[in-house]
Design a protein around this nucleic acid. Structure first.
Lengths: 291, 291
DNA sequence: TCATGTACCTGACTTTAGTCAGATAATTCC
DNA sequence: GGAATTATCTGACTAAAGTCAGGTACATGA
């Protein structure tokens, strides 16, 4: 497979040269780049030091600590012990810190204006569309699918969306049953996967054993992400896991209203079968031979 | 006028976080970022130290000199005196330097692949389209229109394109007449403008005095740039200059085959008039009241 | 031909960015 | 309740990035 990277590389070159100095917008604020980024992330809503570090891509803990000390001494942030876990420290902007943050915002805004203002309204719309598309696809490409414990906060959040959506779309709400913790979705006979972008779950799915064969459960894709090929990617992942767990066949159930999902299953090689369980909300049943 | 910058800013955030590390591709090469960038630019065709500094955005001369010394001691570049100006030094890659450069290329290529490979072919096409559109518009927005002497290399290059195109499209070639140097396009009664992107001319145009009123000449827009609003922008610029030169009226001639140009003149408020000169190739004549 | 300017270089310096090895206090797990 | 783990901090360090003040050789224009 040959993939042409020239368009992307050309774009990177020229865009980074012109704008990539998003970084530069942090300069001139009197704060070094790293420190300004930290201040900015705090203003964006980082609560704990941990949170901050993960948002910034795993910076050294000592390094971050030192920068926080700098910001504290300048009077931009205050730090307090987290009441729910005494090891953690909560970070917050002071009034002066908020001012600094606004200043960074303003600079960033100015920078964007410098580029957008010379364009006609039609060109601006085209540029917005192009950037939004590129953003979505680049995000989609950098999504990672990871196995997590179904009790993990990420998994819980994903299932929360999943059930909320079902409740929303079908006029019923789900109680604790099936949400909190379902051991069948955990090893050794099950597995739960979450696809995350920027630390937020955007899709989830699980495999478990049911009646001697593999079964796919909890398939959910964030509405904003549908049509980006994420569902199929996750499905392939789940099938591979089912195979690893020793199944040659997987089954799943779904509902007639979920037409996109049904189309996806069919494209992925699933065939309609008769009802195999007593799920009252399911209307369609599928199976696929693996390997 | 309120302009929504949020899409662009969101894009910058996420793109720079993921890819903006075009920079990172320079790392792992054994060279620090700055030094690697210098090596890369030399390979791209920088000839003199001066050239290099301007391409890199005006770095400190001492800083660049020191990095060149490093590259020289590693055997990646050689430096010689410029025979045409003994103050200048010419920089070139050695064989080892070319190897290093290829290595940087490979890394940059790998980085792009990392992003493109997870996408489906259709998604890749969409991303390519989006990035190409964004690239064009961003370039268009950062174009600067500058007044130059018509004898300046930039102006000559632009006029070369202009006449080549006319020769190409109308089956005749133009001799020296009008190309080399036309004093009427220079101050005090004329002005020549070039719009440049990345140092290459993409549009040109001139104002001069003819028969007591202003006249617009040498209007040319690079074919790749048509439809990006560049022509109108340049036209407004030329009109402002005509006004500054004391004219209340500008005229121009054009040819019936140039339908885009004619449309642009009409949208800009030009009205058809009778022939006012004896240009054998002109078929349409326009005039506009300024101020 | 001489003053002025240009292109590049050297040395001395500062600030940023980042790493690594412990230390400390709170929490979690048997 | 004690051991292991976790979240954060401190200190000591290095390399990279960048600035500034001269200095030298060459070029240019009156």
């Amino acid at each position: 497979m040959t993939v042409d990277t020239s368009v992307m590389r050309k774009f990177n070159m020229s865009y980074v040269r012109r704008v990539g100095a998003l970084e530069e917008s942090f300069l001139g604020s009197g704060l070094p780049y790293g420190t300004a980024r930290i201040l900015y992330e705090i203003g964006l809503g980082a609560g704990t030091v941990q949170d901050l570090r993960s948002r910034l891509g795993g910076l050294d803990s000592g390094y971050v600590s030192r920068m926080l000390r700098t910001l504290e001494s300048k009077g931009y942030v205050t730090m307090h012990q987290d009441p729910t876990d005494g090891r953690r420290r909560l970070v917050a902007l002071t009034e002066d810190g908020v001012k600094q943050w606004d200043d960074l915002e303003r600079r960033s805004e100015e920078r964007a204006h410098l580029l957008l203002d010379p364009l006609t309204p039609r060109q601006r719309d085209r540029l917005n569309d192009a950037l939004a598309t590129a953003d979505l696809l680049v995000r989609a490409a950098t999504i990672t699918i990871e196995q997590v414990d179904p009790r993990d906060p990420m998994a819980q959040e994903a299932m929360g969306h999943y059930f909320a959506e079902i409740g929303d779309r079908f006029g019923f709400t789900v109680g604790d049953e099936g949400f909190g913790d379902d051991p069948s979705l955990r090893p050794p006979h099950g597995a739960f996967f979450v696809a995350a972008s920027d630390g937020a779950p955007v899709a989830s799915g699980a495999v478990r054993e049911f009646d001697g064969t593999g079964e796919i459960k909890r398939m959910w894709v964030d509405p904003a992400w549908r049509g980006a090929g994420l569902g199929s990617r996750l499905l392939r992942h789940l099938e591979a896991e089912a195979l690893r767990l020793g199944h040659r066949v997987v089954r799943l159930d779904t509902r007639d209203v979920l037409t996109e999902a049904i189309g996806m299953y069919e494209r992925a090689g699933y065939e309609r079968i008769d009802r195999y369980n007593d799920n009252p909300h399911a209307t369609h049943f599928f199976r696929k031979q693996l390997g």
